[in-house]
């Protein structure tokens, strides 16, 4: 089951980006194969509006069923929920730490968005 992380880097040691909709990249990690895929989110990063919505579609297209990120706004959350993707919020500094906390069962599944849109 693939897990999506928000980041500005391209490996597990990279920093976890606290933004979802306007995260620079998504790192998709498959725990079974250990394969890492990095998706550039430049187009949505610069979107006038609806960045979270299209970022959520991108994560859905990647095949990830879990998203681990800092914060997630209401519209993005609505799309992720519609696509059946589980969201976990964390303040972990790196992708590796976020993965560790997720796999250790330390993160609770988000029941709703945890910030307003345009919260940064």
């Amino acid at each position: 089951m693939k897990i999506a992380f928000t980041t500005s880097g391209d490996n597990l040691e990279a920093l976890l980006d606290s933004r979802f909709g306007r995260a620079p990249k998504f790192l998709i990690y498959d725990p079974e194969t250990k394969i890492i895929e990095v998706i550039d989110n430049k187009q949505n990063l610069n979107a006038v509006q609806g960045a979270g919505i299209q970022s959520a579609s991108m994560v859905a297209q990647s095949g990830a069923q879990v998203l681990v990120t800092g914060h997630c706004g209401p519209k993005a959350f609505q799309v992720l929920k519609a696509a059946g993707i589980k969201v976990y919020n964390t303040d972990a500094p790196t992708v590796a730490e976020a993965l560790k906390r997720y796999q250790a069962g330390q993160l609770a599944e988000a029941k709703d968005s945890d910030v307003e849109g345009h919260w940064v």
């Binding site: 509006q49 609806g50 299209q54 579609s57 696509a83 059946g84």
Partner: peptide
Amino acid sequence: YNAIAVVKPL
């Protein structure tokens, strides 16, 4: 305007 998110199932 990014008003449509195309995701499964709808």
